[in-house]
Amino acid sequence: MTSIDENLKQAVVGIAGLGGVGSTVAVALCRAGVGHLVIADFDKVESSNLSRQQYFTDQVGRNKVDATIENLQRINPGMKVEGHRGKLNAHNVPEIFVGADVIAECFDTAQAKQMIVETVLTKMDKPIVVSVSGLAGYGNSNAIQSRRISDRLILVGDGVSSTESGQVLMAARVGIAACHQANAIVEVIVDEIQA
């Protein structure tokens, strides 16, 4: 096992929200060999989600946390996955993600994104947060970027393409942003966190 593999295996990553971004980040990190995920979502899989989220027709109606755990176990049964089935807020985020090295912010609304980024940066000492802002629509792949905002904040996206402005979420562009996010997380784990 290389030191890269060892770092990934020792890492604990939190994923807040299991929609198009979060479900894709979970799969990418599972395949990359991250040892321990803490995943959280309150929602159930709907048939409309299948256009871009990593679920299957037979999982419609199931809790997204349970469906994600099932999918990840089919990829790598050796990975530890802890699931939280409920809404995240400024009070429970520090408890649920205690011990995380990195937290992936994968929520859908701007307000929820603000809440978790502010909470992680002000109420938790350790985790780096990788957040996503601006991934709706299609084309314009290269406008999606990863930027280091500060020691503990990395921001992915184009900053503007949004559901508020009426743009739809599509698998390809959501996937680009999600894989930017997963890639930034792998980079942080390998280069900045000691196993």
């Binding site: 979060g22 701007a110 307000q111 994104k113 603000q114 957040s131 601006g134 709706a136 500060s150 921001l155």
Partner: peptide, 24 residues
């Protein structure tokens, strides 16, 4: 955020505003 209204600004400060838009 709850301290935005009471946090005073001074000449010369460096401010980072990280903006979020919906979609995830």
């Amino acid at each position: 955020r709850k301290k935005f209204a009471e946090t005073k600004l001074r000449n010369g400060q460096s401010i980072e505003l990280v903006r979020f838009v919906g979609g995830g």
